[in-house]
């Protein structure tokens, strides 16, 4: 059942993004930033955790998961290091996404040429 839920949730989130792109003047940059912040807000209310439990990867493949990871890392950082944790812990959980995006992009850029 989780496979169907994953399809449904990520599909609906993408459809919402398409709806915003088609009906407003917002660009893909606006939509992804908006969804990231929205992910952090949903995580704040404890909803995102439930979405992941319900839809699994359906909730983690979309960009809002980045906001969720940032928020959760902030909380985990505070629990471990106190106030310092907000600064030192915020990027810990999302490190994989940031580092892999940087490494893959850089290496591929050295190998490939841009297509016109």
């Amino acid at each position: 059942m989780i496979f169907f839920n994953a399809f449904l949730l990520s599909g609906l989130i993408c459809m919402l993004g398409q709806f915003i792109l088609d009906n407003t003047k917002l660009t893909p940059g606006h939509v992804t930033s908006l969804f990231t912040v929205f992910g952090a807000i949903l995580s704040f209310f404890g909803i995102y955790e439930k979405l992941i439990k319900w839809a699994g990867a359906g909730a983690t493949v979309v960009i809002s998961n980045f906001g969720h990871l940032l928020y959760q890392a902030g909380i985990a950082g505070f629990q471990e290091f106190g106030i310092l944790g907000f600064f030192s812990g915020l990027l810990t959980k999302s490190s994989a996404a940031i580092v892999s995006a940087i490494i893959f992009s850089f290496v591929l850029t050295l190998v490939f040429k841009p297509k016109d």
């Binding site: 989780i2 496979f3 994953a6 399809f7 449904l8 949730l9 990520s10 599909g11 609906l12 989130i13 993408c14 459809m15 993004g17 398409q18 709806f19 088609d22 009906n23 839809a55 699994g56 990867a57 359906g58 983690t60 493949v61 979309v62």
Partner: peptide, 23 residues
């Protein structure tokens, strides 16, 4: 717009579904 929404739904859904299979 309707076609765009349906395409976005299926492609986005497919990524979530394949992701769950991988997980």
């Amino acid at each position: 717009k309707l076609k765009n929404a349906i395409v976005a739904f299926f492609i986005g859904g497919l990524i979530g579904f394949v992701g769950q299979v991988v997980v």
